[in-house]
Design a protein around this nucleic acid. Structure first.
Length: 150
DNA sequence: TTTCTTACA
DNA sequence: TGTAAGGA
């Protein structure tokens, strides 16, 4: 019998994870001067400030953007080109996240192995695609839906 | 203490 | 971009 109770719940709200400029600066090794400058150029954005003149607040997504830009700058990109690539990477990550969120149906223990249920493999819904992660490698397995699990 | 804007090196 | 000034 497979165990279908291992679906990972959404326990973390990344949106509520926010940083001020000094924290973001230390986390990314990008100076606060740079962060303000990048915002001025429209490369990144701080969350809309509640009050009129208070300190900037950055969300988790901006943290990701900044560290991507930082990495590209370290690789030799100039700022405008780094931002352009960051945005491409960003959109790819959005696509990948949507894909996986939609595809991932939970973890099942089959034959004593933890297998990721990735949904129906065929339109007729007679087979299910599973993903395995073993010894640092990814493998796939297609199983018939009526196939008994151990 | 930290952050903000402005301005100069 | 770094740094200083002068407030909040």
């Amino acid at each position: 019998m497979s165990e279908k109770n291992n679906r990972i719940p959404n326990l973390i709200s990344f949106d509520k994870l926010v940083f001020r400029i000094g924290e973001l600066s230390r986390m990314t090794e990008v100076s606060s001067r740079q962060l303000r400058y990048w915002e001025q150029r429209g490369y990144i954005s701080a969350m809309t400030r509640n009050d009129q003149n208070k300190a900037r607040v950055y969300d988790f997504h901006t943290f990701i953007e900044v560290r991507i830009i930082k990495r590209l700058l370290d690789e030799g990109y100039r700022l405008p080109a780094a931002v352009e690539r960051m945005r491409n990477i960003d959109s790819e990550m959005v696509l990948a996240r949507h894909f996986f969120q939609e595809a991932f149906q939970g973890v099942e223990i089959i034959d004593g192995k933890a297998m990721l249920n990735l949904g129906n493999f065929d339109d007729e819904q007679t087979q299910t695609l599973y993903g395995l992660y073993e010894d640092g490698k990814v493998r796939y397995q297609v199983r018939n839906n009526d196939e008994p699990t151990v």
